[in-house]
């Protein structure tokens, strides 16, 4: 249902992207001679990639395993918010030059591309691939839940998103991490700081959402 709803508002035909990717040499919906596997597995060999949703537990266990690989191969916990801070520093350096590089915070977190920055870039690419394979990729301004309560004006959604983003950007740096760095990677290490921060993320988020959607 929501599918139809979105499609009517999309700027770009999602079918075109789906056809573009699925007709490419890498991804085919069905391979000749493999139809028997459907009976056996219940799904076609590649169909799970084009599913719209996976069980949250499959996703969660997958992310847990990714965290283990990150510790093993990169000696790093998965995190995202520092990459935004580095990007901000790169922009500031570009706009203001040397003054930005002298800032104490950027001496601690150099404004340059690192492992975590590449990870966040990867998240963007991975989500694009997943959304395209399931035909969910579409340009939308106003999410459904917002639309039902606050209407379909892109400006209001944009204004609240930018204010929320500013507050989140400050909060993530203030707490030293985000829902990935503290919420998953920190809690799994049983770090005291992360358990406290993660609980506060949700207390703040639940109260704000409750007031906002009242």
């Amino acid at each position: 249902m929501s599918h139809v709803h979105h499609a009517s508002r999309s700027f770009l035909s999602r079918i075109k992207i789906e056809e573009f990717v699925l007709s490419g040499p890498l991804f085919t919906r069905e391979r000749p001679g493999k139809t028997d596997s459907r009976k056996y597995e219940g799904v076609n060999n590649m169909e799970w990639l084009s599913m719209e949703r996976w069980s949250p537990y499959v996703v969660g266990i997958g992310i847990g395993l990714l965290s283990c690989i990150a510790f093993l191969l990169s000696d790093k916990p998965i995190g995202c918010s520092t990459a935004f801070s580095r990007t901000s520093g790169m922009i500031e350096k570009w706009l203001r030059g040397g003054i930005a590089a002298e800032k104490a915070y950027y001496k601690k977190f150099a404004p340059s591309i690192d492992w975590e920055w590449m990870l966040v870039l990867g998240v963007f690419v991975g989500a694009f691939l997943s959304a395209t394979l399931s035909g969910q990729f579409q340009f939308i301004w106003v999410p459904n839940r917002w639309l039902n309560v606050f209407g379909d004006t892109p400006f209001t959604r944009w204004a609240v998103a930018i204010v929320g983003g500013i507050i989140m950007g400050i909060g993530a740096r203030w707490a030293g991490g985000c829902t990935s760095g503290h919420g998953i990677s920190g809690t799994l290490q049983l770090a005291v700081s992360s358990w406290i921060a993660a609980i506060c993320f949700f207390i703040g988020g639940i109260l704000t959402a409750a007031l906002f959607f009242r």
Binding site: M168, W174, I196, C200, F201, F202
Partner: peptide, 25 residues
Amino acid sequence: SSVIGGLIFGVGFGLLGYCPGTLAG
């Protein structure tokens, strides 16, 4: 840092509806 920063982050979380990682996604 953890309590105050966490609560500030939470307010942003509630308004934005994404966190930094899921935002990239």
